[in-house]
């Protein structure tokens, strides 16, 4: 039986791993996807920072001893809003950069895609 903690921890780990891998890629679309995965992982992590508790009310009231911390949820909400805006911005920025420079490489270099390499017959 898989514990709740293990599930959340491994989900965060997999998301971070995928996010880092994609963020280090050379093309802006993959970088944007990587940043998105990374931010999902961060949101889950922030959520877990209030400890993982099941079936508890989020708001403290008199007489209740078991409750879940509502603050991380507020923090996650803030983080989600900021990340959402930033993702929208970075998508438009990447698109403008591609249309203006003719390259979707993060360094702005004209590197042929792998498909172009095959058709042009010059691999590395």
């Amino acid at each position: 039986m898989m514990s709740y903690e293990f599930l959340v921890a491994s989900a965060i780990g997999v998301l971070v791993a995928g996010g880092i891998y994609l963020t280090l890629r050379a093309r802006t679309f993959q970088v944007v996807l990587g940043l998105t995965l990374f931010s999902y992982a961060v949101n889950l992590f922030l959520f877990a920072s209030g400890r993982l508790v099941l079936d508890r009310p989020p708001i403290w009231e008199k007489g209740v001893t078991q409750y879940t911390d509502p603050l991380p949820q507020a923090l996650v909400l803030t983080a989600i809003v900021i990340t959402f805006g930033m993702t929208a911005f970075v998508v438009i920025l990447a698109l403008r950069s591609y249309l203006e420079t003719g390259s979707d490489h993060v360094d702005g270099e004209k590197v042929p895609c792998s498909g172009d390499e095959l058709s042009a017959g010059k691999g590395e």
């Binding site: 963020t23 961060v42 922030l46 920025l93 990447a94 403008r96 950069s97 420079t101 360094d107």
Partner: peptide, 23 residues
């Protein structure tokens, strides 16, 4: 635009690390 993409990506990664530290 070229420099902007790099600047934004670096700072977004920085912001994510900031949130992890805060958590």
């Amino acid at each position: 635009l070229k420099a902007g993409v790099q600047y934004v990506v670096v700072n977004l990664v920085g912001s994510s690390l900031f949130l992890i530290a805060l958590g």
